[in-house]
C-alpha cells in the first residue's frame, strides 16, 4: 500500500445516525431510484454510504444509453470527501455488458462498493439477473447499489429499494444555496417495514448525510427583576 497524500476525513459511518433508518448494508443488493436531475444526489448518497475509506469504488455505467451527457467530476468527488483516485469507471457498450461487468465486479472482494448506473427500463435486469448480483454480493460482502434513473420500479431480488429526491436547502447568507438536502424514501425492504421518508442534510464536517440539526430556539434568559450589586435597588 503506497502512502497517499490525499488527506481524507474520518471514514463516513455507514450506519445511519437515526436508529430508525436502515443503511445500505454491505453484502446486499440495493436499488436507488431517482429522477435524472436528482442524479448527483443519488450518486452522492450511494458513494458516501460505502463503508471503507481506502478501497476502490467501482462505477459501472453505459454513457451511450444515459439520458444526460454527464460524467463524474474528480474535484466534486473530493468535495464529498472521496479521494477521486479510488474511483474506477467501467464503461459498458450495452445493457447486457453493463450487467455482466457489474456481476464481475460484484464478485471482487477487495472493493469498497459497486455502483451500477442504469437509465430507463433496463430490460435485462430481471429476477435472475438481480439474484445473481445478490449471490455475488453475499459472497464478496460488498454493497452492490443499482442506480436506476428515470425508471419505474420492477420486481427484483434486491434487499431494499429507495427513492432519492432533492429538497430545497436552508439558505445561507445572501440567499446562497445551503448544504445539499435530500429526502430518502424507503420504497421496499425485504423483511421489514417500508414507506418511511427521512430528510437528510449534508454535513460537511462528517462528510455524510445527517439529520438536519434542530434550529436554535432563539430564546433568551429573562433579566432578573432584582440584580445583585445594584446600587439603586428598586423598592416595591
Amino acid at each position: 500500500m503506497s502512502v497517499h497524500p490525499f488527506v481524507g476525513p474520518a471514514p463516513a459511518a455507514s450506519a445511519p445516525v437515526k436508529p430508525g433508518m436502515p443503511g445500505l448494508c454491505p453484502g446486499q443488493l440495493h436499488e436507488l431510484h431517482a429522477h435524472a436531475q436528482d442524479w448527483a444526489s443519488a450518486l452522492a448518497f450511494a458513494l458516501t454510504a460505502a463503508p471503507d475509506n481506502r478501497a476502490p469504488l467501482v462505477l459501472v455505467r453505459s454513457p451511450r444509453r444515459a439520458g444526460l451527457p454527464l460524467q463524474p467530476y474528480g474535484e466534486g468527488l473530493a468535495a464529498l470527501g472521496i479521494d477521486p483516485s479510488r474511483l474506477l469507471i467501467v464503461v459498458a457498450p450495452d445493457e447486457m455488458a453493463l450487467l455482466r461487468a457489474g456481476l464481475e465486479a460484484a464478485r471482487c472482494p477487495g472493493l469498497s462498493a459497486l455502483i451500477v448506473e442504469s437509465w430507463g427500463k433496463l430490460a435485462a435486469y430481471d429476477l435472475t439477473a438481480s439474484r445473481r448480483l445478490v449471490l455475488a454480493a453475499e459472497r464478496s460482502g460488498l454493497p452492490v447499489i443499482v442506480l436506476r434513473l428515470d425508471a419505474s420500479p420492477r420486481a427484483s431480488a434486491a434487499h431494499s429499494r429507495w427513492l432519492i429526491r432533492n429538497l430545497p436547502s436552508l439558505p445561507q447568507a445572501a440567499n446562497a444555496p445551503g448544504q445539499p438536502t435530500i429526502a430518502i424514501e424507503l420504497l421496499r425492504q425485504r423483511g421489514g417495514p417500508a414507506g418511511q421518508i427521512w430528510q437528510r442534510e449534508w454535513n460537511d464536517a462528517d462528510k455524510a448525510f445527517r439529520d438536519r440539526p434542530a434550529p436554535l430556539s432563539g430564546a433568551v434568559v429573562p433579566f432578573p427583576a432584582l440584580r445583585t450589586g445594584d446600587p439603586h435597588p428598586r423598592v416595591a
Binding site: 497524500p5 490525499f6 488527506v7 444526460l68 451527457p69 454527464l70 463524474p72 467530476y73 468535495a79
Partner: peptide, 21 residues
C-alpha cells in the same frame, strides 16, 4: 498506475457530475 490527486484544499464549489459538453 492509480493517479495521485492533490489534497482537497480548494474552496470553490465544484459539482459531482459535469456535463460534457
Amino acid at each position: 498506475p492509480p493517479p495521485l490527486w492533490p489534497a482537497a484544499a480548494q474552496a470553490m464549489p465544484r459539482p459531482l457530475l459535469l456535463f460534457d459538453p
